Measured scan of single mutants.
Amino acid sequence: GLPPGWRKIHDAAGTYYWHVPSGSTQWQRPTW
């Protein structure tokens, strides 16, 4: 699974990851 606080988001551009507490997003899968 993903580290705490991360969500996987799907949209028209593809899949990305959202860090809910900080509001940051990234294309790379977050690592622990």
Score class of each variant (00 low, 15 high):
25 T>G: 09
9 I>K: 05
4 P>E: 08
25 T>V: 15
17 Y>A: 00
29 R>E: 11
9 I>L: 07
26 Q>M: 09
11 D>T: 15
4 P>S: 06
25 T>N: 06
15 T>E: 09
13 A>R: 14
17 Y>F: 07
5 G>N: 04
22 S>M: 02
20 V>Q: 11
24 S>W: 15
6 W>I: 00
2 L>T: 02
25 T>S: 09
6 W>V: 00
10 H>V: 15
29 R>G: 04
14 G>D: 04
10 H>Y: 11
13 A>M: 14
9 I>M: 13
15 T>V: 13
2 L>R: 04
22 S>D: 04
5 G>M: 03
28 Q>F: 10
28 Q>P: 05
27 W>P: 08
3 P>Q: 01
19 H>P: 00
19 H>R: 01
15 T>W: 11
22 S>V: 02
18 W>L: 15
3 P>H: 01
25 T>Q: 08
14 G>P: 02
27 W>Q: 12
28 Q>L: 10
26 Q>I: 05
23 G>D: 07
14 G>M: 05
16 Y>T: 01
23 G>N: 11
1 G>R: 13
18 W>Y: 15
29 R>M: 12
1 G>K: 13
21 P>E: 11
19 H>M: 04
3 P>E: 02
4 P>Y: 06
27 W>T: 13
30 P>R: 00
11 D>Q: 07
20 V>W: 13
1 G>Q: 13
9 I>P: 01
16 Y>L: 08
18 W>A: 07
14 G>L: 06
10 H>W: 10
25 T>M: 14
6 W>F: 02
24 S>A: 15
11 D>E: 07
26 Q>P: 01
16 Y>W: 12
6 W>T: 01
8 K>Y: 10
3 P>L: 04
21 P>W: 07
14 G>R: 07
6 W>H: 00
21 P>K: 09
8 K>Q: 14
21 P>L: 09
12 A>P: 11
29 R>F: 12
4 P>T: 06
1 G>D: 14
10 H>G: 07
1 G>A: 14
8 K>H: 09
10 H>L: 11
8 K>W: 11
17 Y>I: 00
6 W>D: 02
13 A>F: 15
8 K>A: 14
24 S>D: 11
18 W>K: 12
31 T>S: 12
15 T>P: 06
29 R>A: 11
31 T>N: 09
32 W>T: 10
21 P>M: 07
31 T>G: 11
20 V>L: 09
21 P>I: 09
23 G>Q: 05
20 V>N: 03
32 W>Q: 10
26 Q>V: 05
11 D>G: 15
1 G>H: 12
32 W>H: 10
21 P>T: 07
16 Y>A: 03
4 P>N: 06
4 P>G: 06
18 W>P: 00
15 T>L: 08
27 W>F: 12
30 P>D: 02
13 A>E: 11
1 G>V: 12
6 W>P: 00
4 P>Q: 06
1 G>W: 12
3 P>S: 02
8 K>F: 11
26 Q>F: 05
16 Y>R: 09
32 W>R: 08
19 H>L: 05
3 P>W: 03
20 V>R: 06
2 L>E: 15
29 R>N: 09
27 W>D: 08
5 G>V: 02
14 G>I: 06
6 W>M: 01
14 G>F: 07
